[in-house]
Nucleic acid binder design. Sequence first.
DNA 1: ATGTTTTACTCAAACGATTGCGCTGTAAGC
DNA 2: GCTTACAGCGCAATCGTTTGAGTAAAACAT
Lengths: 337, 337
Amino acid sequence: MEPVNIKKLAQLLNLSIATVSKALRDSYDISKETKEKVVALANELNYQPNPHASSLRKHKSKTIAVIIPEIANNYFTLAINGIESVAQEKGYHVLIYLTHEDYKREVAFARELFNGRVDGALISVAGTTTDYTHFKNLRDKGLPIVFFDRVCDEIDTLKVTTDDFESSYLATKHLIGQGCKKITHFAISSKLSIGNKRKRGYLQAMADHHLPVSDSLIVECINDDDRDIEMIEELFRREKPDGIFAAVERYAMDGYEVCSRLNLRIPQDVKVLSFSNLRIASFLNPSLTTITQPAFDIGKEAAARLLNNLEKKHAPLANESIVFKSSLIQRASTSSI
Amino acid sequence: MEPVNIKKLAQLLNLSIATVSKALRDSYDISKETKEKVVALANELNYQPNPHASSLRKHKSKTIAVIIPEIANNYFTLAINGIESVAQEKGYHVLIYLTHEDYKREVAFARELFNGRVDGALISVAGTTTDYTHFKNLRDKGLPIVFFDRVCDEIDTLKVTTDDFESSYLATKHLIGQGCKKITHFAISSKLSIGNKRKRGYLQAMADHHLPVSDSLIVECINDDDRDIEMIEELFRREKPDGIFAAVERYAMDGYEVCSRLNLRIPQDVKVLSFSNLRIASFLNPSLTTITQPAFDIGKEAAARLLNNLEKKHAPLANESIVFKSSLIQRASTSSI
DNA sequence: ATGTTTTACTCAAACGATTGCGCTGTAAGC
DNA sequence: GCTTACAGCGCAATCGTTTGAGTAAAACAT
């Protein structure tokens, strides 16, 4: 309970507070002997500098914020793993904020970050967000931001994504190649650039193969399983599609559920392909053909870039896009016959 | 970039810093009119108090740490969801630390928490941890700790768990009821109290049903898929079991993998049951019978208790155990025939 | 011997907010 | 008309650390 702070160290060593501080920070104008004595005692007493005092003084918190829509999601989980691994390595602390796809919470979080609690932020935008001034404000205040996965194109900063258009195109093409004629798309919010890209990839592939598309073939899911399943079921009764291209894993599972309810066989009656980072996609019944993103690497890269920028703070983060390639892994859910 | 701090507010309002501070904190000796003016300007300028300054002064950080072994795990993901929900509600911030089951990192994290960065911690112990002095030190320094899931019995504080012994007993009994005679157990570190309880539940059920058990039927997995699968495969070749009781989901999936490699059919040749919080356990091939824990509620309860204790700090957290009930959900992986 | 540099410290002012105490002026009490 | 009370606000210390500027002594140069 008794505080072991720099003052106490100074007292015990008969040195000034300044000397102790400089010794610990390995300043060049403290003698080697003094440094050793100071460090020895600090270790002995398990001295840990008070982060608030030092953050206050230095205007650096050695902390970053991660703002994401949800955490019960393999993609974000893997990304956090990547983020945490580089944070840990570089001695940074990671604060987690979950928006639950809610714009209001996102705004509230952004406001909180104005005050120096964190040195930078890694953000994946909420599905209900349409206005980006809360992020713009952060940016204007000079807080380094890196967007990943669900990026915000309107803000000039680093973005780390996957080749969403290309892989969606590829995915749709794969379904078509397996014999699908009427493919539905379970989309994420078209307000999100990532949602748009995935949808456009799908639309383009359909068009290129002269397959008709219409809005009635697209469900914009909302991350509420009950309601999503309802909408999907309705679409199935109405359109009787023979293929599903899901923009996220969760919706693919909703698709499985609906097929099961409607007694449709996968892949005989309906083929399913989804963006997914589920480690056990191969153990699903049937095993799920996926577009898998290098989520861990994405998180790692985003964090590494951010921290790198924080260390040598000169330039603000460039308005650059880093694009990772995702890969199509074919499994039973899209096999022909 | 220009800092909008309490000083600037004071200047603009022609008031002293003290008055502004007190007005914002709704102190009783500031007039209503002044308060209103202060609050109005603060909102207009989007003033956010510097958390480091106030933490330094108040010795409170409004931040808690969550130390867990891993995050790519549905249990912990759900628990974090629960934790974050109450933290958000009560205005707390959540720092995440992943030990990756590594004792050394756990010790390092614990040391970091000595310095007031956080007001309290929620901990789930790493599998390789055998010595608990790093946590004892925290406790002795007066830092409130709540253990959840993988608790540390040797430390007097609040623990939130599930009825591990009972549900393991039940699980094993279920397998036996479905016709299994030779059940293997994929265990987590026996150094963990939770590992022990699950193992004991299994052993007790086997004993009560007069089935022989031996160490050769138990694999203590280590969270490294390749090596775990190797060990499991070896056990299968050696023992030819007809049932698997996995202490965590991941090992069950390793079991699926091994069965697939050895051309063993589930559930005809081998029945599988596992602790798991996989939302889509029912879509596995075959669907997996699970013991499912109320992970979200566990996280929520643990966090609520911790924060509650932080608010009215008088008494240290009682050495109490809160036990949640988990439920057995029967699916195809254990069906007879 | 005097002047200059180097070495190894210490001083004290920040950083931004909080808070006990004290000061002022007005209103109430007698 | 005097004291007393109290509302409303400011002063200044404090939290623990960092850091530029200052200083005294030792080392070196002239």
